[in-house]
Structures are given as structure tokens and as C-alpha cells.
């Protein structure tokens, strides 16, 4: 099996900041808006280099989304930055009407998604945002897995015409995908070849899926591991091709099992190739305070949980 080297833990939000900084130099139409979380979103470099294209909107997310929609009129490519909770749930109607229905070229960039936000607790740990965003017609939904991929995705979405939700996180996690990779929206990344079970993962769970595959391999189970960085549009072809080979699937995400990647995969398989599926996701619950590792353990979102789900999926073939 392939080995992946962690080149050093880094946070995905810093990947966003680096991508935005790079875009600032290459695309003069890129503008950035932030709702009083410049440091948390790692937007400082863009702000310092391009103060005229950086808009501090204060703690006023609804206005931020409207401003961004308006800035597209005149050819700007706005990147909004705040926590995932305030990027989606708080401003759902603004995104729905002024961005999605209006077909505006706004990039909604959301940090601190999911449980790994940690000690701030459930008020800030949104586990519903993928569902909210993927239900909007025309919205592209991306959840990147590491620093390098987040940087590449940030750069790639500027070239995509249409609204995008880009989801990333707070903690430092393994950085293992190639530097300066060619990020293709909607194209799954095949990480491991295997025949016994398919594991599709998104965001922070991708590294956990690779760790799980190692454990399974040691026990004589070969896992086909796919990194689904784009939840919408979903690379259905890659998923169907894999389950035709393995006959069962585990989906893994830092999100509620309602509305997330798992449900998108289930819909695809139900209509094209019915397959036993296990969900590694939160079970319709809010989070709580704790360290990221404690929370991922308690809510069953780590390599051990993926191993367990894989074995269960195999018994259901």
C-alpha cells in the first residue's frame, strides 16, 4: 500500500490564508471581506499587502454577505471570511437570495468548522453547514483535508465562476498532500487501492481514513480510500467504480450524519448501485467543550471509528 508522509502538522485555515495571499498577487479582482476575525481566518497577509481590497465589516455577517454579492457587480471576486457557523447558519437567507438565487460569484470561506474548534463548545461548532450549503441550487461545496490542499483549493475557486462554500478548520493536522497540487473541483482523489471496503472521507477525516487503512491492512483487510474534497458536485463515478470493486462503503466526515457527505453518497448509491454503507459522523447531536482529540474520540470521528465501521460494513455485504 502507498505511504503518505506527514510533512508537519499545519492548520487548514493557514492554507486558506496562504492561498488568499497568493491570489492577491495574481488576480486584482480578488477582494476579501472579514467579520472581525482577520487573525483567526489568517487573512492578515492579504490585508497588509492589499489594504484597498480588504474590507473589515465588523461583527455584521448578514451585511458582509450582501456586500460581497454587490461587489460581484463590477467584476470583483469576493472571498468572505468568518467561522463556519457564522458563514452559514447565521446568514442562510442572505446567501440563499443575494448569492445563490442571484447567481453571484461569491466565495464563502469558513474556518473553525466542526468539533475540532474545541473548547469554545457547541455554540461555535457547526455540524450542519455542509447540509445547509449543499441544498442551495448552484452552490459548490468543498471541505479540504490539509494545509496544502486548502491553499490549492482557495486558488482554484477564484477561477471557478459561481458561488462556492469552502470549509476548513482550526487545529493543526497532518499535512500530507502535495505542495502546489492541481486542485480540480468535483474530482475525487484516490489515495489507496483496496478490494474489501471503500472509505470515502472529507476534511480532517481523510488523514484518519489513511490511518484506518493502515490498521485494516495489518489485519489483512484492504481498503480503497478516496478523498472527497468536493461534496457538491460529487464525483459519483469514482464512488460507484470503487464500490463495484469492494461491495461496501464507509463515509467519514466531521459533520452530522444528516445532510452531510454520507447522505450525498447514500443518495448516489441508492439510485445507481445499492451498497451497504456505514456512517462515521456525528449522530444528530450538538458538540461540547473539550480538546479536539477528546471530542473526535468521544463523538466517534477518528481512525479507530473508521476501522470499526469498516469491519461492520464488510459483514453486511
Amino acid at each position: 500500500m502507498k505511504t503518505y508522509e506527514n510533512t508537519g502538522n499545519k492548520d487548514t485555515r493557514s492554507g486558506f490564508g496562504a492561498g488568499l495571499e497568493a491570489l492577491g498577487k495574481t488576480n486584482e479582482n480578488v477582494v476579501a471581506l472579514c467579520a472581525d476575525l482577520t487573525g483567526s481566518l489568517k487573512m492578515d497577509a492579504f490585508k497588509a499587502n492589499h489594504p484597498e481590497r480588504f474590507f473589515q465589516v465588523g461583527i455584521a455577517e448578514a451585511n458582509m454577505i450582501g456586500l460581497a454579492a454587490g461587489m460581484t457587480i463590477g467584476g470583483k471576486i469576493p472571498f468572505t471570511g468568518t467561522f463556519a457557523n457564522f458563514s452559514t447558519g447565521r446568514v442562510y437567507d442572505q446567501i440563499r437570495q443575494s448569492v445563490a438565487y442571484s447567481g453571484k460569484n461569491v466565495k464563502i470561506c469558513a474556518s473553525h468548522a466542526g468539533l475540532t474548534l474545541g473548547e469554545d463548545g457547541a455554540t461555535h461548532q457547526i455540524l450542519e453547514d455542509i447540509g445547509l450549503m449543499k441544498m442551495l441550487p448552484g452552490m459548490t461545496v468543498i471541505n479540504t483535508c490539509d494545509y496544502n490542499q486548502t491553499k490549492a483549493a482557495t486558488i482554484a475557486i477564484a477561477a471557478h465562476k459561481g458561488p462556492v462554500y469552502l470549509r476548513f478548520g482550526r487545529p493543526k493536522v497532518a499535512n500530507f498532500t502535495p505542495e502546489n497540487q492541481d486542485f480540480q473541483i468535483g474530482k475525487a482523489v484516490h489515495l489507496q487501492e483496496g478490494n474489501d471496503v471503500t472509505i470515502v472521507a472529507t476534511g480532517h477525516l481523510v488523514w484518519e481514513a489513511l490511518e484506518a487503512a493502515k490498521t485494516l491492512h495489518a489485519e489483512g483487510i484492504s481498503a480503497d480510500v478516496i478523498n472527497i474534497h468536493t461534496i457538491k458536485p460529487l464525483d459519483e463515478e469514482a464512488i460507484i467504480a470503487s464500490v463495484k470493486k469492494t461491495g461496501c462503503i464507509v463515509t467519514a466526515e466531521e459533520h452530522n450524519f444528516l445532510g452531510g457527505l454520507g447522505e450525498s453518497v447514500a443518495r448516489t448509491l441508492a439510485t445507481s448501485h445499492p451498497t451497504p454503507q456505514e456512517f462515521v459522523a456525528t449522530q444528530d447531536t450538538f458538540g461540547e467543550s473539550g480538546t479536539p482529540a477528546q471530542l473526535m474520540e468521544k463523538y466517534g470521528l477518528n481512525a479507530a471509528a473508521i476501522v470499526k465501521a469498516s469491519k461492520k460494513a464488510i459483514t453486511r455485504k
Binding site: F55, A62, N63, I65, G66, L67, A68, A69, G70, M71, T72, I73, G74, G75, K76, P78, D93, Q94, R96, Q97, S98, Y101, S102, K104
Partner: peptide
Amino acid sequence: IASGSLGQGLSVALGAAEA
């Protein structure tokens, strides 16, 4: 811009003014 759900138009106008 689409409008109907109230209260959103001024923000959009300001964004367009910034652009």
C-alpha cells in the same frame, strides 16, 4: 439582484458602490 426577502438590498447596493 434578487429581492423579496426583505432587508438585503442596501447591503448589496453598498457592495456595488465599493466595487
